[in-house]
Design a protein around this nucleic acid. Sequence first.
DNA 1: AGTAGCCTACCGACCAGTCGGTCGGCCGAT
DNA 2: ATCGGCCGACCGACTGGTCGGTAGGCTACT
Lengths: 206, 206
Amino acid sequence: MSARKPPASTPLSGAAEPVRADIIAAATRVFSERGYHAASMDQIAQAVGIRKPSLYHHVRRKEDLLFAIHEQLIDELLDETTRAVDAAESPADAVRGVLRVALGFVARHRDAVTVFLQERSAVTGERWTELVVKRDRYEQMVSGAIADGVAGGRFQAVPPAMAARAVLAMANWGYTWFDPSGTMTSDEVAELFADIALKGLEVRQH
Amino acid sequence: MSARKPPASTPLSGAAEPVRADIIAAATRVFSERGYHAASMDQIAQAVGIRKPSLYHHVRRKEDLLFAIHEQLIDELLDETTRAVDAAESPADAVRGVLRVALGFVARHRDAVTVFLQERSAVTGERWTELVVKRDRYEQMVSGAIADGVAGGRFQAVPPAMAARAVLAMANWGYTWFDPSGTMTSDEVAELFADIALKGLEVRQH
DNA sequence: AGTAGCCTACCGACCAGTCGGTCGGCCGAT
DNA sequence: ATCGGCCGACCGACTGGTCGGTAGGCTACT
């Protein structure tokens, strides 16, 4: 064919043109309910209100949907957390902020968080690497704050990376049980978890 | 050996005759690597060293494998944790024991724990109910220990169910990052996490 | 000892159904 | 008359699961 090959290249590193928001929302819902592999493109199309071939008008591959969900979430999370940590006046404040942001995400973007945490390994290739880089940056922000606390003598001498894992675990695990219509708001839970992580469960009698 | 007929009857409710151990091991490996839905029975058969139809000689359905993995893990976990909590001399000791057992499982049965925590929703029907019952019993054991601590005035006045979630989160999330060949053993991590949960990160100056 | 019968474990060939993905064409708005 | 959004019809690949049959070990009876 004489026809010049269309651009056909991903415009930039990773980032393709944005997928329509309602499609991402529908995919997020379906993926979170049935899991990435068990969800079919037909089911997603139905959730959008169109047929499968039309869905392929907006997305090149199924994996693109999964990646878009992952990327959107980590970018927003990174952004909000950075702001919270920067605004913190003490390491303890930073830990509180991290927990508040993370649990807020669980509450507000429940399905997306579920997909993000449960379908981590379904993203492949260099796109996965891209996500890992951002995830590492996120974790290092948390362990950095804790390291500051240790260095300043305000935290116990714990390995910061380990403590960060403990803190993040409390937040991440929330997608498993948190109920937005439950008795506690995400901020209340965040405060409670921060208290536990910072002050501990045991009563100190001095 | 005289020709005594083997039991050959379904011994109890639900429990079918046990699936050959190497098959469960292979399925655990494959499921944890690729995810339940992405894993094919052929891949499992190959991991065992037989062909797919032979695999169906030992298992009725794919889901049976998943259920067997889940059941085996939760039964053992429930058992070990019960012993640890019963042997504890204080609520704080109980929390330490729970973390030690749970993180020990992560270290020793990494793949099974991964399947258990990541493929929870793939089990369906009444078998799922059965698992939920046991999981709840497990969680209540932990929150019960914390409630004891609160009632005895040795723990802060936190909602026990919430605190239990924080503690379990630290342990469960371990399957995400724990490396058995890393610098810390699972017992060391458990001790560190217990210290954080019980005493907190902040230094108290009185 | 020989042998008939049975049973477990295994396999090649196969099936119906589903999946991700494509193609050519329709339609309404610009 | 072009074009973005949409769709019916279709395809190849693969999946979970089945079926008929085989190899070989154990038992029981002769």
